[in-house]
Design a protein around this nucleic acid. Structure first.
Length: 235
DNA sequence: CGTATTTGACCAGCGC
DNA sequence: GCGCTGGTCAAATACG
């Protein structure tokens, strides 16, 4: 098994969407910081928090070609390239009129507008999914409180892109209509409940679909400190 | 030995 | 109500 965080990078294409894989619309990115702010702590996404659910539609693709060598230095450089490719223009997103909520939150379209619960992730308690069975009513309510999600697909030989955060794999599942198993990752930072799913397209095993759920309450660089810091001290 | 990953089991939601 | 499916847990295992 591999412990690496997918920092070895090969050639890939990157396409980003705020929808489920089956109806992807892709974003053209110019500035990685913009995209990363979707994952970033509340302090940096405060402006975005009201934008994510907005109707938007994007269509474009970005291709980047990082160095093929995999030394730490080049991997880091490649990581920057990935990050660069992951940036996007907020104005473009919010000004798109035809993006509907179903597209934004296709995996659970009924609850799209409950995303203002996204702060829950920052509260360090994301256990709504395992409430006691004796409290089913509450379970159902809680089930609706989904984290904001967005996904992007990459053409890559590696499954886990280096997005600057550190992830721990907690599950893998074979999903229907897919030849490849889906992997589940959770941010290793304490109090950060961001998750991501990674799977490969059955039609094209080189295409990797990555779906993020929730927002980090820390910056990527904080991951190195991980549990050492209380990320809420600034709030 | 500590930490990360693997993997089977379990649970809840959803569709029929 | 039942079966299917996705998502998560947690014990076992692997690795540094």
């Amino acid at each position: 098994m591999e412990r690496g965080e997918g920092r070895e990078l090969n050639n890939y294409e990157l396409q980003v969407s705020f929808s489920a894989p089956h109806d992807l619309g892709f974003v053209h990115f110019a500035d990685h910081n913009q995209m990363m702010s979707f994952l970033a702590p509340p302090s940096s996404h405060s402006q975005l928090s009201s934008q994510i659910p907005q109707p938007l539609q994007v269509a474009a693709a970005t291709t980047v070609t990082p160095p093929t060598t995999t030394t730490n230095a080049t991997a880091a450089a490649a990581s920057n390239n990935i990050s660069s490719a992951l940036g996007f223009n907020h104005n473009e997103l919010v000004n798109r009129p035809s993006w509907n909520n179903d597209q934004v939150e296709t995996l659970d379209p009924k609850v799209v507008n409950d995303e203002n619960c996204s702060g829950n992730a920052s509260e360090g308690n994301n256990s709504w999914w395992k409430s006691s069975s004796s409290d089913k009513g509450k379970v159902k309510i809680r089930r609706k409180l989904r984290e904001p999600r967005f996904c992007f697909q990459t053409r890559s030989d590696i499954d886990v892109l280096d997005d600057g955060y550190k992830w721990r794999k907690y599950g893998q599942k074979v999903v229907k209509n897919s030849l490849h198993p889906r992997s589940y990752y959770r941010c290793t930072h304490s109090n950060c409940r961001v998750k991501k799913r990674v799977e490969r397209l059955s039609e094209d095993c080189r295409m990797v679909i990555t779906t993020y759920e929730g927002r980090h309450n820390h910056s990527p660089s904080d991951d190195s400190n991980s549990s050492e810091h209380d990320c809420f001290t600034s709030f």
